[in-house]
């Protein structure tokens, strides 16, 4: 269980959020640009430090303002897929995916099997030896996913995880991710603009506005609410359904 209560001054407003995410549960964050969704991910990952609050996974505290605990990002055992993928251009797909394992001093043979398993999972086997700067957008995104998943993290943070993939791949990846999170029994937080992502990935959905989570509930609960933003959000949904 991920327990979060953090506060930090950002440039235009103060980010203040408190929520929990159960193991095997995916919490989807939606909201306007600049609402603080990505910042929240950075706070959880340890790449940005809160000013006060507490972040913990089970018994393990990642951050506690009261006790001066601030575990550095390198030691938090998280998998982070960035919005711009941040794939290392000078390394091959294989080396990119293997990066986290190498840092953890995993045995070479184990690296090989785990990396190949995840390459297959994301349909990247044929690109294993290709240098990352030669990849298309979708291939980069899949590499980023593989790289984050292969290290079997304790917390998964996804910033627009499937946006660059084609419709079929998106469908497949959403269900893969959902299954992965359930099987690994870890908490997962995903930021997205896509209502399909929100509906199919999210066990719970959180709406962020100027640094605060103004609504938090299951997809059904959200649909029934009167929020203007949500209305538009789900309006597309109805239109889509209509066009089928």
């Amino acid at each position: 269980m991920l327990e979060v209560a953090v506060r930090r001054n950002l440039r235009d407003y103060t980010l203040e959020a408190a929520f929990n995410v159960g193991s095997g549960e995916t919490f989807v964050l939606i909201g306007e640009n600049g609402a603080g969704k990505s910042s929240l991910l950075f706070l959880l990952s340890g790449l940005l430090s809160p000013e006060s609050g507490r972040i913990s996974i089970g018994e393990r505290a990642l951050y506690d303002g009261a006790y001066g605990i601030d575990v550095p990002a390198e030691a938090r055992d998280i998998g982070f897929v960035f919005q711009n993928y941040a794939i290392f251009p000078h390394l091959t797909v294989f080396e990119n995916v293997a990066f986290g394992l190498r840092r953890r001093k995993v045995q070479a043979s184990e690296i090989r099997s785990r990396v190949e398993e995840h390459l297959a999972l994301l349909s990247l086997e044929n690109l294993s030896a290709v240098r990352a700067d030669q990849l298309s957008g979708g291939e980069r995104q899949r590499t980023a996913l593989a790289r984050a998943l292969v290290i079997a993290p304790a917390l998964l943070l996804l910033d627009e995880p499937v946006s660059a993939l084609d419709a079929v791949a998106q469908e497949r990846m959403r269900s893969e991710l959902r299954n992965y999170v359930r099987r690994a029994d870890i908490p997962c937080i995903a930021v997205t603009h896509s209502f399909r992502d929100a509906l199919s990935l999210g066990d719970r959905i959180g709406v962020m506005e100027r640094g605060r989570i103004v609504q938090n509930g299951t997809p059904d609960e959200m649909r029934r609410s009167g929020n203007e933003f949500l209305h538009q959000f789900f309006c597309e949904c109805r239109q889509e359904h209509g066009s089928h």
Binding site: S45, G46, L47, A73, E74, G79, H90, A148, I151
Partner: peptide
């Protein structure tokens, strides 16, 4: 791009290894 370093850190790479394996080559 600073996100390379951030990505490396998120994968468990501390400052010095990040500098030599990610930043310097780029």
């Amino acid at each position: 791009d600073t996100t390379y370093e951030l990505a490396a850190r998120s994968l468990g790479s501390t400052s010095l290894p990040t500098f030599f394996t990610v930043i310097l080559p780029l």
